[in-house]
């Protein structure tokens, strides 16, 4: 087998994406847990760790650019490297959204919740499963799994609709809940956006494997 150095570099890139992805998965969990448990310390940790994801994105980008410049990849190699830079961007954005949720944790830490938070942690859990599945499909070059994970996003969208409807009824009944209700709506929307970014990753995995452009 020739090009073993190139293959090693590609493998390292895959590892970087996996590492970055597992940080994102953990960050989503911590951000939502900090909100539900009104744990400001945990929220601060999420906020502080955001730099780490920015660093990973730049590091992965640099490696991809270097490989393209020096190795002139084609076919699947090219598709993979081209998509890895975009996957890194999606992951970084997901980190930003978790950061936003952690900021809301800090704003709401001294207030009593207008309702108990049930659907928001559920959404976060589906998000985490999706992140894990998307990364697995990426590593195993499994287009079928990527499609399956992409379709899961519908569940997240439905929960988002449901949460917003529910919060609206609270807000109509009692205008004093508007300030908090509005913030929780943002949390729901941030989680919905995270799902969209996972879907983007799944689309890219399908492209890497089949060279086919799909949208979920």
């Amino acid at each position: 087998m020739v090009r073993s150095n190139f293959d090693k570099d590609l493998e390292k890139l895959n590892q970087d994406i996996l590492k970055m992805g597992s940080i994102v998965e953990e960050t989503i969990y911590k951000a939502v847990t900090s909100l539900v448990e009104q744990d400001v310390e945990l929220a601060e940790e999420v906020i502080k760790n955001d730099d780490q994801l920015d660093y990973y994105e730049i590091k992965i980008d640099k490696k991809c650019i270097k490989l393209i410049a020096l190795q002139q990849p084609v076919a699947r190699d090219l598709r993979q490297i081209g998509m890895i830079t975009k996957i890194a961007t999606d992951l970084e954005r997901m980190g930003d959204l978790a950061y936003n949720i952690a900021s809301i944790t800090k704003e709401l830490s001294a207030e009593e919740f207008i309702k108990s938070l049930i659907d928001i942690p559920r959404m976060a859990e589906i998000n985490q499963q999706m992140v894990r599945g998307a990364l697995e499909s990426f590593v195993n070059l499994d287009a079928e799994q990527a499609r399956e994970v992409g379709r899961k996003d519908d569940q997240v969208d439905e929960l988002d609709d449901q949460i917003i409807r529910e919060l609206l009824t609270y807000m109509i009944e009692d205008p004093k809940t508007i300030k908090q209700g509005n913030k929780l709506m943002f949390v729901s929307r941030y989680l919905e956006r995270i799902g969209d970014h996972v879907t983007n990753i799944c689309e890219k995995v399908v492209y890497i494997v089949t060279a086919e452009r799909v949208t979920f």
């Binding site: 084609v74 076919a75 190699d77 090219l78 598709r79 060279a211």
Partner: peptide
């Protein structure tokens, strides 16, 4: 051919994994 070759032999050659 350079984005999505149809045959594995072609892909192996153009990606330098031939041999």
């Amino acid at each position: 051919l350079f984005e999505k070759p149809e045959y594995k032999k072609t892909e192996d050659y153009i990606t330098g994994r031939f041999g």
